[in-house]
Simulated scan of single mutants.
Amino acid sequence: MVDNTRRAVLRVGVGLGGVGLAGCTGRFTGQTDGGTLGNPEFAEGRPDPDGPTMDDLPDLGGEVTVYSGRSEQRVGELIDHIEDRYDDLTVDVRYADSADLVNAILTEEGTPADIYYTTESGTLTFLKEEGYTETMPEDVLELCPEEFRDPDDQWMGLTRRSWAVAFNTDRFEASDIPEGIMEFPESEVAGEMGWAPFRGSTQAFVTAMRVIHGEEETREWIEGMLDAGLRTYEGGRSDLAQATGSGEIGASLYNHYIVRGNLDMPIDVTYTRNDAGVVPIVPGACVMDASDDHETAVNFIGHWASAEAQEYFATTTWEYPVSPHVEPLDVLPDRDELEPPEIDLNDLADIETTLELLRDLDVL
């Protein structure tokens, strides 16, 4: 349910029950031999996803190596499903933090990676600018709207997340949360907030703030939040969610799907408007220039943009599909109810300046 009087708020009733993680069974269009994909609980009652299906895409064969900055818990089931679909396809996946994978690519002599898949677009742009990526064909790129892909045709987004403010409903109401992210240091919630600055998505948020609001204002914002009592959680998403839900802190800066897996806790989510607080974070993929089989690699990425895969992301990771033919979960605000700032996703590539700022402020 969405509160349209002020801002989009994610509301989840306790009757929904727990959320299964990737690896559980589910349903998808075109399932064969009883095979299923995704989370059945949140797929129930949804229309079959529209748009190109895996059956509409070229068959896959050969060997593909994927460097995945997205965890096996999130995407392993989908990758395994694609591999199992084709008898002549072998997929080797290396799961690690995106930054570690980029460093590996930079130091490897002829990286074995055919595909780099990451949680946010900044490292995709970095690899493009360093000359490690290959131009992708239009018939695959067109599976993703232009605003979520590289204008130079070097990478494409596969899902979209929104930065958001999670809050403990026993401590705050949505009306207590400022509408503008730059107002937070002076707000009543600032002293009860936490964040996870070691996470790539948090660093993308700070980078967006630098791009939109300027480096000096970003520095002042971080200093103001720290002075107010902003707490750092090194464990990342799970620790931050637990701390928010338990009341250890009253609110946190987080991805919009914080309530996923925490439906038994008093957590809700609200959004700022037209600023870094609601910047889109786009997980995506590129084909490596060193790939031995560009065609198979690019068509493998195309399978992640298929109707079945987009439905998988919607019901399993709670992300917004990039496909306009597949709707997000109805517990999330509609796409047109969010008011993200206009920003070139390639501008989020300068993570190093963000890291220097965070180190200078003793955040990292």
Results as ranks from 00 to 15, higher is better:
V66S: 00
Q73S: 05
G122E: 04
S252G: 06
K128Y: 10
I181S: 01
A99T: 09
L332A: 07
M1Y: 14
W221T: 15
E319P: 04
T5E: 15
A96F: 02
P47V: 12
A22T: 08
C144P: 10
T25C: 14
S238W: 08
G45A: 11
Y67Q: 05
I105N: 00
P49S: 11
R6H: 14
M182R: 15
A251W: 06
R171L: 09
R94N: 03
E223H: 03
T218W: 02
P340R: 00
D80K: 15
I79H: 01
D350I: 12
L240P: 04
T123V: 07
V91L: 10
G20D: 13
H256I: 07
E83K: 15
L226N: 05
E109C: 00
L361G: 08
G191C: 08
G122R: 09
R260E: 09
C24R: 14
V211M: 05
E217A: 14
P341I: 11
C286K: 02
F198W: 15
W304P: 01
Y312I: 05
C286L: 11
T107C: 00
P145D: 11
L101K: 00
L263Q: 13
G236E: 09
D289V: 12
H256M: 09
F42H: 07
V206Y: 01
G61C: 10
T133I: 05
D33M: 13
S252H: 07
F300M: 07
L332G: 09
G247Y: 10
D292P: 05
K128M: 06
E342N: 12
G13Y: 12
V298W: 02
E356N: 13
S71A: 13
L141P: 08
A99E: 02
G157V: 07
A190S: 12
A297C: 08
A305V: 04
E77K: 06
A349N: 01
E308I: 00
A314R: 01
R335D: 13
E234T: 10
P185K: 11
R27Y: 13
E342K: 08
G277D: 04
F205N: 03
N4D: 14
E192H: 10
M156C: 07
T53F: 05
S201I: 12
D55V: 10
P283T: 14
E173L: 14
P40E: 03
G194I: 02
A309I: 01
M225S: 04
Y320G: 07
